[in-house]
Amino acid sequence: MKARLAMTALAALFAAITLAPLLWMVAVSLMQPGEAGRFPPPLVPADPTLAHYRALFANQGMGLFLLNSLAISTLATVLALIFTLPAGYAFARLRYPGRDTTVRVLLALLLVPGQIGMLPLFLELKALGLVNSYAGVLVPWLAGIVGIFLVRQYALAIPLDLVEAARIDGASEWRIFRHVALPVMRPAIATLALFVFLGSWNDFLWPLIVLSDHDLYTLPVALAALGRERSQDIELMMAGSVVTTVPVLVLFLALQRQFVGGLLAGSVKG
């Protein structure tokens, strides 16, 4: 009993340290201007205020950046699903010449970090007229190899007999994909959607490169720019951080089981 209490206390202490920066972020975002700069640094706001949030939305265009982030993450998720689901299914359950070679090549490509090709990709998109647009930010999410393998992993669980029976019944390949495979792959769809949404929401380097128009900035790009102008304004910066990261933290907490399960399926088995 004593050991149980001690071990739980240890876990709680570890968890408190882990959460401290995020809790402090919320606390400071509610403080009066200049309050966080006092000594000793206060942990809770003496007189909580939402003034910094109002200032962000009224003067800094935070509402627009929030909309940009929402639009880009939603579009990235939809596009990634459209491109990835049929491919992952084909690699797992359709038989055609060249399939196994393709899968081996893609597996090797997993070792190539996306940043390596960023300079030529920028030039390529510039030639296509896609630089400084939503489309430019979205392009890398069409080519998600990790997502294809995640879907393939789940699609391998579709019983071959089920597919074969549908074929004998005269169903077209598209119909089989749509009405036999997709229902079985529902967990894969949810996991992939969650990954792409969070990934595109948190993404920084590529939107920083491809977006030059201030009005198109996503939240992380806008927050980094704000930090260079208003770095002395701690309370405002913390409010900006809350607006940027709380939506994804809430999403994670709501869908925690899905997320952790999907990550384990994708990273360890895949």
Binding site: L19, L22, M25, P220, A224, G227, G240, L253
Partner: peptide, 14 residues
Amino acid sequence: FAPYVATLVAAAVV
């Protein structure tokens, strides 16, 4: 696991 999900730029600012 929560810090891993948090937005990198926001966490770095904090």
